[in-house]
């Protein structure tokens, strides 16, 4: 009996061996589609003349190098038929320095590339600005990370949607948060960013956008695909279509989105 007790004590340790591993997976590749990254940002209420639209193509999931697409004709039209043309400055990057934007206007994007024509429509959205920013040391799930918190006041009379991006040097890509006023209408809303690697002296770049409902819904579906909500309970992956339409062939649709949003940019130094 004594022998049994010894053995069982040793064996009785719980080994909760749940774990994650990087694995190799053979992936198929679908017919490539065009991608239009057309996010017009009107910064801090000033005239944001310089804007960039990027055109690329989908590629294999593990292929690191981006496939840029050259030779596109890109124009943005407003309600008064004012035309802004974008010129290619490097492969896939199309720039303008003459963009003028005004609120409450509808805009139309027209792109001609590789023999196809694309179009999208969007409207500018009313602005909200950041009220204040605070910092703390009890952020994150475990409550011991440095954090930066922004506060803003939601307009109670309408439905508002927000996009917040935090970036800092050690992050490979920005941390993105979506917020709607569904649960906090009319209140002062707070969004926090924290990371266990955040230290005193780090600079956090904060971009605060007011976006349209359609763009919010699109980003919501898109972020679900990025696996940021991964796990056994992840929702169904899906093909996320944006608002850009192929005028010649409806089913040969591109990815990406055409949006116009107000942007407030703030850099914060972590204390």
């Amino acid at each position: 009996m004594k022998k049994y007790i010894c053995i069982t004590v040793i064996l009785g340790l719980i080994l909760f061996t749940s774990c994650t591993d990087v694995v190799e997976v053979d992936l198929e590749e679908a017919t490539p589609r065009l991608v239009f990254d057309a996010s017009i940002k009107w910064e801090n209420g000033e005239l944001a003349n310089e804007q960039i639209i990027k055109v690329s193509r989908t590629r294999n999931f593990f292929e690191e190098e981006i496939t840029w697409v050259s030779g596109a004709n890109i124009e943005v039209l407003d309600e008064n038929n004012n035309l802004t043309t974008f010129e290619e400055v490097e492969p896939g990057h199309y720039k303008t320095e003459n963009f003028t934007a005004s609120l409450e206007q509808d805009y139309q994007l027209n792109i001609a590339v590789e023999g196809k024509t694309f179009q999208a429509n969007t409207a500018f959205v009313n602005t909200t600005s950041i009220d204040s920013i605070s910092q703390g040391n009890e952020g994150g799930f475990s409550g011991d990370e440095k954090e930066v918190v922004i506060y803003f006041k939601d307009e109670p009379t309408e439905e508002n949607y927000y996009l917040i991006r935090f970036n800092t040097e050690f992050l490979a890509f920005p941390s993105v948060e979506l917020q709607s006023d569904q649960f906090n209408n009319g209140n002062s809303i707070s969004i926090s960013f924290s990371d266990e690697d955040l230290e005193t002296g780090d600079i956090v770049e904060i971009e605060f956008y007011s976006i349209s409902e359609a763009y919010h819904d699109f980003l919501f579906k898109l972020l679900l695909q990025t696996g940021s909500a991964g796990g056994p309970f992840q929702a169904q992956p899906a093909t996320v279509r944006g608002n850009i339409v192929n005028l010649d062939d409806f089913d040969d649709f591109p990815f990406g989105y055409f949006s116009l949003s107000t942007l407030e940019k703030v850099n914060v130094i972590v204390e």
Partner: peptide
């Protein structure tokens, strides 16, 4: 239990992450 495809937060490269719930678990 699942295989998630995502961007590595440090390198920015894409990877496939397999989640397993239980390895070898002895009990008494």
């Amino acid at each position: 239990a699942s295989i998630n495809f995502r961007q590595n937060q440090e390198t920015g490269a894409n990877e496939a992450i397999r989640l397993s719930i239980f390895g070898i678990v002895p009990s008494v």
